[in-house]
Write a protein that binds this DNA or RNA. Structure first.
Lengths: 208, 208
DNA sequence: GTAAGATGTTGACGCTGTCAAGATCTATGA
DNA sequence: TCATAGATCTTGACAGCGTCAACATCTTAC
């Protein structure tokens, strides 16, 4: 009598774009980007396989839209640390390192999408994604400068280079973890603390 | 009269396995792992599309075999640095960092295959690959211990954690470069030097 | 109320990895 | 020497993929 699925009652979905992003994010988290296909996604949402093409030019645009969501969430988490009045500068740096790597460890597929080669390698990021990602990258430089001025990081080193190296460090640790090269996540705390020591111990010597 | 291709004269290829690895390595270097298909590879080598399956269980095994080649080459390059009698310890550390990141920058696709999630994430590395990769990983730990004993790296930090962090640092910088997040390779020298400073400056303070 | 545009549908194409079944060559041992 | 087992290579087939073209349906604006 009726259709097999109730939601199919309407010809138009209503808010397909949002549904696609949300469902795709969930599928990404569960099965990884290599198991995320537009056809399975459309099926899961309950539309035909080409319906998504009226909302995203191609698969890449969908992935960029998912990454955008990731950056929004990410940004909130960063700001929470830096606006916490109960933390001194060293505690903030520690919280940042720990928060960064924990986010990656808890959302490995999203982290890979946000900071991995799938999107960035061939310069395939959409303008919309760049608009939110680039400021995030630059925020890292700003933080580094702040910490240099406050004496936590060595002021003698070039800010841009230092921020590339410190970011490289936590990015590299995150990647070793989520790519399965160091599968053991139980060492995260110790690794974060070791990284912090390496960053901060320079201070007195360099700035004396 | 004759076949369109001379090499097709023989039914058996002769050394197909080696040919596949070599040709696949070249295709990988040129077009990246995402454009490397078994069918194009077989076509290039001049065999039918399923011929490779008599030498590799599946595509993953082929990729692992390519990565093995990469590790062999890699290992030679490392040993060259450490057996150079003209370098003192700090120069060796500098040469190691620079050599590591230069290798990645010059062989981005191979580096990604060797140290990326394609192979390692789902634990899909073959035993044969693990046999050559794991010692390479452990070699990094050994070097770190050496440099700690020689006073170049802080002896107060746990060797394993420190080696994870230092490797994470250069791995992270390499990834930022080859994934196109920092596309500008002209800063490699400065970034390496900044990383070195961060590693080494701790020395006097920690070991005094 | 009709026309335009947004949104959804089915059909089709070429690409992919991989399995099954059969063809051909090589090597082993009676 | 010669059959035969095993290694190697072939074509045929299948399901899954991203994407384009053509058509259907609903919504919105004049």
């Amino acid at each position: 009598m009726t259709d097999k699925k109730l939601p199919k009652a309407r010809y138009h979905h209503g808010d397909l774009r949002t549904s696609l992003i949300l469902t795709a994010s969930a599928m990404l988290k569960d099965n990884g980007v290599e198991n995320l296909s537009l056809r399975k996604l459309a099926d899961q949402v309950g539309v035909s396989r080409t319906a998504p093409y009226h909302h995203f030019k191609d698969k890449n645009e969908l992935l960029c839209a998912i990454a955008e969501q990731g950056f929004s969430h990410w940004k909130l988490q960063l700001e929470e640390i830096f606006e916490n009045p109960d933390l001194n500068e060293e505690q903030k740096l520690r919280a940042f390192i720990h928060g960064y790597i924990s986010y990656a460890a808890q959302n490995p597929e999203m982290y890979d999408l946000m900071f991995g080669r799938t999107i960035w390698k061939q310069n395939s990021a959409t303008d919309s994604l760049k608009d939110i990602a680039y400021p995030t990258f630059q925020f890292q430089v700003k933080m580094t400068r702040d910490w240099q001025h406050k004496g936590l990081l060595p002021a003698s080193l070039d800010t841009l280079r230092l921020s590339q190296v410190t970011w490289g460090t936590i990015h590299g640790i995150a990647r070793l973890l989520i790519d399965g090269i160091y599968a053991d996540a139980s060492h995260i705390d110790e690794m974060c603390e070791t990284a912090l020591r390496m960053f901060v111990l320079n201070r007195q010597e360099v700035d004396k």
